[in-house]
Amino acid sequence: MKKVLSVLSVATLSLSLVLAGCGSKPEAQPQGQTGSNGGAPAAKAIKVGMVTDVGGVNDNSFNQSAWEGLQKLQTDLNLPKENVNYLQSKSDADYVPNLTQFVKDGWDLTWGIGFLMGDHLKKVADENKNAKLAIIDAEVDAPNVASVLFKEHEGSFLAGVVAAKMTKSKKVGFVGGVDIPVIKRFDLGFEAGVKAVDPSIQVIKVYTGAFDKPDMGKSTASSMYGQGVDIIFHASGGTGDGVFNEAKDRKAKGENVWVIGVDKDQSLTFGDEITLTSMVKRVDEAVIRVAKDLSEGKFKGGVQWLGLAENGVGLADTSTKNVPEDVLKLVEEYKQKIVKGEITVPDK
């Protein structure tokens, strides 16, 4: 019975996700309208678009998070629903035309989601100096581009603390997507967090080389769990779905394994029976933040780093379900130390 229920809940969940992804037509909410009457009435009805990387808008990760941010923006600013939209990229070759589409159509702000889009976004920004663009996870040196980066190492440090306190086997794992600076920050922060609690804990790291290969994620997780790892922190986009699947399979067989999710609260997608916590990157907040700046006429190019202090990264609110209070308290202590600068988390 329990099994049936869980299958059903997964089914509804994924269905609702698919619908959310396809939809892009949230019903007009009367509360939203009334609520926004008191809001910033002077703001002009901006149009904000985003281009996903090859992971697509249902990647359970930062693309999806960014899109959720845009949808929230739409309700917050009471925009017509066609004022936010996204384009998915099927291959590297699509980035430029997708970004260009928004720019040429006169959208006020165009987001490129993901490090991989950096050079392409730069090209589009240079060709269209009047357009305003923004990018997540990459530094693009152009006056009309806002680059938003996260101090993933800081958030990952906290994930490392949780992992170190919760592991029984004294072995924890890290599954990375591609070995690039962003992912390296997750890696180093996580390791630093683990070692800060207990230097004897072993951290096994694997970079799968892909953000969109759940099969590789599953096989990597399988071999890690096979080596005695009981908690895996993944920073690998869609590849990580495979890590969750493997954990689910093992959990069903009675093994006590966990996954630490990434980018957004992945317990909402994969269930809290396997998701220990998630290192949340508030891509949605960043998207909203920059867009609101724009609507208030405060948009400016350049790099912004969002860390623990800026609430750009952190652990998911649902962490309380699986992580005991004392551990969370310890996490909070470390967080304060980082915010105050007492601890500097390595990022390179």
Binding site: V54, K90, D92, L116, G177, G209, A210, D212, K213
Partner: peptide
Amino acid sequence: AIMTQHTG
């Protein structure tokens, strides 16, 4: 670029 998948 480094390719994470085939070009298709």
